[in-house]
Amino acid sequence: MDITRHNSKAWDKKVERGSNYTKPVSSEIIEQSKLGQWEITVTKEKAVPRNWFPESIDGLHILCLASGGGQQGPILAAAGADVTVLGISMKQLEQDEMVAKREGLNLKTVHGDMSDLSMFEENYFDMVIHPVSNLFVNEIRPVWNEVSRVLRDKGILIAGFANPLLWIFDDEQERKGILDVKYSVPSSTLDHLSEEKIEEYINANETIEYAHTLEDQVQGQIDAGFVITGFYEDDFGGTRIIDNYIKTFIATRAVKVKM
């Protein structure tokens, strides 16, 4: 099946259902961003440190990669950046377009797959912002390679992704408050389901997710020509039992360096 097409439809449904990841920022947040008082997240709770950004992002070309929903992109545009938001969900991109129109922001949207950035020139962007989203593609090294290609030398990649430990537990048991190690990594949502359950899952328009190794997440960036210069961890804000034991989100700051 076409995973990208399926996940595109699934995210369209999330917009219709009002998922938190699809809710655009308010006019108040945009006004504060225009005054220089802004922050974004690429994980769940913790804001990206401001010192991960240049002192001023005014005029910088920033790609918000797989980042639709009217959140990161409009904030950065309000802070003065020339922002392009790429995503697979048209309804998510419409959230960005709505905020841009509402607030008069310099923001463009592109409907596309994070693994294929061929519509962009090499060495064009100054920064790429990539919140937790590469769990929706089977192979993530092509994503890092494409990001490296479109970033200029010394360009900055800020990425959020899930710790693979998040996927080793039985979901039904976790909802009961029990952490039962059951699955291996790498794997996908569909690997653990019967044919009958797979059909039900797909028909329910749920996203298909992939558990990637930390080697592909971190060494994958390094192999693509990046030097990791920042790192922090985050969690679900105490809403899941696993938060009591370990952080399950990771954010990295990486700089493209010609070797």
Rank of each mutant, 00 (worst) to 15 (best):
S33T: 11
Y201K: 01
P24I: 05
I3P: 01
N145A: 14
D191N: 12
V99I: 12
K13H: 11
G36V: 07
E172T: 09
C64I: 07
A81E: 05
I246S: 07
R5P: 00
S187I: 08
L35W: 05
T43H: 03
W52R: 01
E172Q: 10
S187M: 08
A251I: 02
L86V: 10
N20L: 15
I222R: 11
K154W: 13
Y124V: 01
E45M: 14
V218F: 12
T4K: 05
G225D: 02
A204M: 11
L214P: 03
V42F: 02
G237C: 12
K14V: 11
L179R: 00
K91H: 06
L35T: 13
T213Q: 04
W38F: 13
L157V: 11
L193H: 09
S89N: 06
A254F: 06
I57V: 09
E209D: 10
K9G: 04
V227R: 08
L117H: 06
V25C: 01
N51L: 02
V150S: 06
I222G: 07
V99Y: 00
A78H: 03
Q71R: 15
L214N: 10
G73H: 00
Y21L: 14
L135T: 15
S118K: 10
E196V: 14
R17N: 15
I75W: 04
G220N: 10
A254G: 12
I158C: 06
G220R: 09
A224D: 09
V150F: 07
L190C: 04
Y210K: 02
S27G: 05
I208V: 14
I246C: 08
N51D: 13
E172W: 08
A47R: 07
A47F: 12
V185R: 03
Q217P: 02
Q71F: 09
I178H: 00
T207Y: 03
A162E: 13
R17L: 15
Q71G: 06
T207L: 07
I30P: 01
K9V: 13
